[in-house]
Write a protein that binds this DNA or RNA. Structure first.
Length: 607
RNA sequence: GCGCCCGUAGCUCAGCCGGAUAGAGCAACGGCCUUCUAAGCCGUGGGUCGGGGGUUCGAGUCCCUCCGGGCGCGCCA
């Protein structure tokens, strides 16, 4: 719980059952909370005072329809059923106990027992001035150590669209969590180990012997991989060498390791480039690849065996999970060691959990990976609990995402059916954005920067704005449109506000802090601004960035409506009104910028 | 066969522990620029929320069932 408002009423939380005495106008700065949290608490107190059992929740929610006020308490109906009384009468009793002086302008009972609250404009104005919503997210939260595993490309190949969702969704959630003051540890679980590296290293050595430089040979990783594969398939001697290299690699052979390091270095450099272009906060220090866990794997399997969790089956070491059995009682099998002695991703994922809990001190672990890995993650988490790698206190979360689809409804591919390279996709985005930008006053340099921010922002926003767990359809025209719920629309809304200040020659920081919410559009905008923290909280809890996108789009839309209805710099606007509307506009700009930053999307002054 | 996910306007999507006449955008149609960025705003039309049962004051939301689609299920990751 967190945020904007404060109130001494919170003390009553420690005195359950005791009626609330403090008049609301005495609200002072003791503890931050959102409007929703404040109203929930006040409603809960009123319900207790009305004799309703404590387990009945108030169910406070923002009203969907302006006719029903700003917030509504929906708990009266449920409570009435529980205590066996008339819901409308019970609502009356609750309202009689509600201490909303100075907060609400109107409280009404409607329908079967809804309690509709219209907030007081002066109160909203004061809140907005006292606690700018975009500036106080970290207030009052218990900081946690949270390990976030995202991106995790396979270093054998070039990054492709399959890595896009994990990378940008994970990065947005990471930024949201950090904004709340949590100790976030990024883990880029790259695929830098496994049999395919034998082949790649053999190929690299072959090319180095032909006086090729590693950087040059690996310039096009995709091409290099295909070449190695072809070589492997067609040349028996090469294939044998490759297999030999796998063994030497696993045995820690210095020469082979050196080549492996070289390969890894070049491949990682390629990832860094993509991250930078994408404005993703991952850096080399966050890389913790599969190879890191290699030494721990035999130890871990031995431990699973000793605990009686793993047993030999058809030559492999297998953990049978009764917890995940089908309805016929067949346990779910998880292989942790192959019959040839090799390990699998289950094994290194388990080692990763143990490391994250034991060494990194994670209280919460979030893994952003494809929805198709759901069963695997469930198996790994179940084993981790049983083996004691993670206690019940540690939250283990798989944050799955759906597949990126083309307009034909099938997985996104090139026209010829190949894998779409991420670098090419992103460059195309910038290229397309540069064609969409109309502003002729920008210099070539400015225009290039705007194109980059708009193009990359559009790709990210399109992805982030859809429900994470669903498949989503990739569509250039839609994401680069300035109409509707898109990145460019939000960036435009921001620049539009900045242009007001440019035109007026005013620095928002020097504005006199005074705000009056007279027109309905002004009040609606202020209320929306104050709900920023509620949204960010929810994104942090559920790892669902699309909620923030929806919020920012609503905010921008409300601003546009306000802007049409309420003149600011035009002739005949009273100075105080003008100042007030400038404050409101600036608050919107700051919130848009802060929100977009949490999504990893940049804004610009002009476009 | 077993399991997970999905089905909401022509299209792309929202819908917050069940809450009031199911919301946006695009597309269609009609308005609004001599004044703050019209890349905008205002309005109209458009729905058996896949079908059918059930739970209850109330179901797009929860349960069951059927239909349709996607994905996964011991030695790839």
């Amino acid at each position: 719980m967190r945020s904007l408002l404060f109130c001494c009423l919170c003390r009553s939380l420690h005195l359950p059952g005791r009626p609330l005495q403090s008049p609301a106008h005495q609200i002072t700065d003791v503890q931050f909370m959102t409007i929703r949290a404040l109203l929930t608490e006040l409603a809960q107190n009123a319900m207790l005072a009305a004799g309703i059992p404590a387990e009945c929740e108030p169910h406070v929610a923002p009203s969907k329809n302006p006719a029903f006020g700003d917030y509504q308490i929906n708990g009266a109906m449920g409570a009435a059923k529980k205590v066996g009384s008339n819901p409308r009468e019970l609502a009356q009793k609750i309202v009689a106990e509600l201490k909303l002086d100075g907060i609400a302008q109107k409280v009404e009972i409607a329908g079967p027992g809804f309690i509709n609250i219209s907030l007081d404009s002066a109160w909203l104005a004061k809140l907005l001035l006292d606690q700018p919503p975009y500036a106080s997210l970290a207030q009052g939260l218990e900081p946690q150590t949270i390990v976030v595993d995202y991106s995790g490309p396979n270093l054998a190949k070039e990054m492709h669209v399959g890595h896009l969702r994990s990378t940008i969704i994970g990065d947005a959630v990471v930024r949201v969590l950090e904004s709340q003051g949590h100790n976030v540890i990024r883990q880029n679980h790259v695929g830098d180990w496994g049999t395919q590296f034998g082949m790649l290293i053999a190929e690299l050595e072959a090319q180095l012997q032909q006086d090729e430089r590693a950087e040059l040979a690996l310039q096009d990783l995709e091409h290099f991989y295909q070449k190695a594969k072809k070589h492997f398939d067609e040349d028996q001697a090469f294939a044998d060498l490759a297999r030999q290299y796998v063994v030497r690699l696993q045995a820690g052979d210095a020469e082979v390791l050196k080549l492996w390091h070289k390969f890894r270095e070049v491949s990682l450099a390629h990832c860094e480039e993509i991250y930078e272009l994408l404005n993703v906060s991952l850096t080399p220090e966050h890389v913790r690849g599969e190879s890191f866990y290699n030494p721990d794997l035999p130890v871990l399997v031995e431990e699973l065996k000793n605990q009686g969790l793993a047993q030999e089956d058809q030559g492999a070491q297998v953990v049978f999970l009764q917890e995940l059995a089908d309805k016929n009682g067949n346990p779910s099998p998880v292989i942790v060691q192959k019959k040839d002695g090799g390990y699998l991703y289950s094994t290194s994922d388990l080692a990763a959990i143990r490391f994250r809990v034991g060494t990194l001190g994670a209280a919460r672990i979030m893994v952003f990976s494809d929805a198709r890995q759901a069963l695997h993650m469930q198996q790994v988490y179940t084993i981790a609990r049983k083996a004691g790698f993670a206690s019940e206190q540690v939250k283990l979360e798989h944050c799955p995402f759906g597949t990126m689809m083309g307009s034909d409804g099938k997985p996104f591919k090139t026209r010829t059916g190949g894998t779409v390279k991420l670098a090419e996709l992103l460059h195309e985005a910038v290229e397309r954005a540069s064609k969409v930008i109309q502003d002729t006053e920008l210099t070539a340099e400015e225009k290039a920067e705007v194109a980059r921010k708009v193009g990359i922002g559009a790709v990210k926003y399109a992805d982030l704005s859809k429900t994470r767990t669903l498949d989503y359809v990739f569509n250039w025209d839609q994401m680069l449109s300035f109409e509707g719920n898109t990145g460019p629309y939000l960036q435009y809304a921001y620049t539009r506000i900045r242009s007001i200040f440019r035109k007026a020659g005013i620095n928002p920081a020097e504005l006199e802090a005074q705000l009056q919410l007279v027109e309905p559009q002004e009040k609606a905008l202020a209320l929306k601004l104050l709900q920023y923290g509620e949204t960010v909280d929810q994104v942090a809890q559920e790892a669902m960035p699309h909620l923030l996108c929806t919020y920012l789009y609503d905010l921008a839309s409300l601003f546009m409506t306000f802007y049409e209805a309420c003149p600011i710099l035009k002739d005949g606007v009273d100075v105080e009104i003008r100042n007030s509307r400038l404050i409101l506009s600036d608050s919107v700009a700051q919130t848009l910028r802060a929100g977009l930053e949490l999504l990893g999307i940049e804004v610009m002054e002009k476009m």
